[in-house]
């Protein structure tokens, strides 16, 4: 390889360089949904980072999105937490998704501030993944979660119910990855609303 080509090669490998259609090197964990992995930079959930899932309503497949990741983390002896889930995480279904529920702790935090505090505590305590359900989450709180996820090297997944502002693409987020999920004509569709290191606004069908 000539010196010139070497220089170009080095430049292309530099993480600061962003190429329109390419994918920057990013530490990620496969989502377990092949069609979704293909859309994501690094091919999955970004590690040690905050990801946001904007779901249209409960029951559109929003939790299934994370199940392969959770199952894999549990097999790797990482601990998991669900904080303030809207319904009872149903144990038989968790088992059907291959998740050993022993690794999972559910925190029924009543107040939003308590839920955020618990999420941060558990992320810092090296949780594999913390799933938090909270509709209105301030950017400062998001940043704190992001920092906690970096400290504990875990996945922070925030579930937020979609609002009309989301439809307009107006609400801001500091999350590394932002997915939207909705269900139409019996099929769950995932939209990549934002992702660090690649071009967003692409969508795929879940389980397709």
């Amino acid at each position: 390889m000539s010196a010139r080509a070497q220089a170009l090669h080095d430049l292309l490998r530099d993480a600061r360089l962003w190429r329109g259609d390419g994918q920057a090197p990013l530490r990620a964990e496969p989502t377990g949904h092949a069609s979704l992995d293909a859309l994501l930079p690094g091919g999955g959930w970004p590690c040690a980072a905050l990801s946001e899932i904007v779901y249209a309503a409960p029951g559109v497949g929003e939790l299934q999105l994370a199940m392969p990741l959770l199952a894999r983390l549990a097999r790797g002896r990482r601990r998991l937490a669900m904080i303030a889930p809207p319904y009872v995480p149903y144990a038989p279904a968790l088992a059907q998704h291959g998740l050993d529920a022993q690794a999972l702790v559910v925190v029924d935090a009543g107040r939003e501030s308590d839920a955020l505090w618990a999420a941060e505590e558990l992320l810092r305590a090296q949780a594999g993944a913390v799933l938090l359900w909270q509709d209105a989450i301030a950017p400062t709180a998001q940043r704190r979660l992001q920092l906690a996820a970096e400290t504990g090297d875990g996945f922070a997944l925030v579930y937020r119910r979609a609002t009309t502002r989301d439809a307009a693409g107006a609400s801001a987020s500091v999350a590394s990855l932002r997915l939207g999920i909705a269900r139409e004509r019996g099929v769950s569709r995932v939209d990549v609303l934002k992702c660090r290191g690649a071009r967003p606004t692409r969508s795929c069908a879940l389980g397709a």
């Binding site: 529920a101 999972l104 505590e121 558990l122 305590a125 949780a127």
Partner: peptide
Amino acid sequence: AEWTAAIERIAARLGAHVLWTPAPQ
């Protein structure tokens, strides 16, 4: 140790009843 300590802090502040682990029966 960190995990145990974090869970105990949560149980102490929010009450032990808020923490549970689902299991099929």
